[in-house]
Design a protein around this nucleic acid. Sequence first.
DNA 1: TGTACGAGACGAACGCCGTTCTAGACGAAC
DNA 2: GTTCGTCTAGAACGGCGTTCGTCTCGTACA
Lengths: 242, 242
Amino acid sequence: MPGGSGEVVSRRARPAKAPLSRDGIVATGLDLLGEQGLPGLSLRKIAAALDTGPASLYAYVANLEELRALVLDKALGDVAHGVGQGREWRPRLKAILTSYVEVLLAKPGLAPLATTTIASGPNAMRLTESLLEALIGGGVDPAAAAWGVDLLLLQVTGIAAEQSARRSQGDVMGRVAKAYAEAPAHELPLVHALHKELFSGPGSSRFGWALDVLITGITQAPRPPTGSEPGHDRPGHDKDPA
Amino acid sequence: MPGGSGEVVSRRARPAKAPLSRDGIVATGLDLLGEQGLPGLSLRKIAAALDTGPASLYAYVANLEELRALVLDKALGDVAHGVGQGREWRPRLKAILTSYVEVLLAKPGLAPLATTTIASGPNAMRLTESLLEALIGGGVDPAAAAWGVDLLLLQVTGIAAEQSARRSQGDVMGRVAKAYAEAPAHELPLVHALHKELFSGPGSSRFGWALDVLITGITQAPRPPTGSEPGHDRPGHDKDPA
DNA sequence: TGTACGAGACGAACGCCGTTCTAGACGAAC
DNA sequence: GTTCGTCTAGAACGGCGTTCGTCTCGTACA
């Protein structure tokens, strides 16, 4: 293509760079996520940290979405899924979920990442298994346990994300709290009266209360799904795919 | 400034463009969100739809984050917050939350938007007021009601987002479901046995069950917070702001 | 031993994004 | 009639995910 003077500069200046690897890419992404929060988890920043270009990462990762799932799953490896093995099932369940939320809060970007991405790697599945085991071991109907795990993870992840936002974006949360604090006493009397309770607490007591609510509800809910319902549960595939 | 031949092209060719307005910008954003999903809610696309440049929007909106909150709050205006006024508090609460989730699912990008953004506009606050009213009217302790509203909204929003993702990103959800379906029977026996229940149901029955769980738990949770606790709830501002 | 092949590395570019700077245009107030 | 402040834009900056085409290099095969 370049018909002019040849002058092919030899691309010999390669100082023994460590070869890329999927694990290294994911580990670097997790590090950057911990340092810079969610914006740190970008293909370009990971590539720069690895002293290469973004295109090089595509040999190991399909796209950003897959990378995010891998990073989240790697982080979930720190969850203590075998905690309180001998104890009763309720404290055991709480201990696992507490470990989960602690992991999410250990690095700034993890909680927001967990709300957007669903990990399907081995660590996420191990966590699901532990939660199912605790619930079913406590006598909860298996089908209710399956749905309950979803409920618990969704709630706990959301609480972690809320608390994470309070740390790193206190200004934004402050503006929201102020808006509720300035609610007109007429028109919105309950919001006005309870605005402090609505935003109270850094999560520790609130988190425990949420767990109690969910566990109580799961064990005592009126009619746990039997799983053998007529089958109108899944008519075709989707009712409105557009 | 350009010393050359004057030739100042008169900028007269302005065909009576409707002047921009905050409401028009938000309405256009909501329309685009409904048509193109979350990626449709961008300053550039809204500006293009309004036949102007992105810089022009900054006279009415501080940044994208504020615009997102405004769009979400406008959408929440469709929630029927006065539904089932005469009925008992439980069906009333369910009716309000059902309306909320229906609004979120009415336009493709709304549910994902609601998981990322917290609206603090009048419609969001009216929704909070209605939920508080139903709970407290049912005899729930006011402090527990305040925290319960958070619980309910978080859960319902998450369920809506999950269902929304199933519609517009069925492939992604399918891959996750397949990963769980292929869980090794040893190692992860419960996940293997219950993988179908973990991903079952398009939400209608599941949504109702989640509501029952939460309401039951909120009313029967062991010790609702009294609100007059010693005060270690909020020592300074944040324990670990970094 | 020589050679062909395929996977990995990578520079460059495309199109998108939010945001800012700068200069004009215009209506209202003095 | 002039000034002033708000609104309108064009242009640009830096960053993003992703793709394309090419180049290198270790390896397997002849």
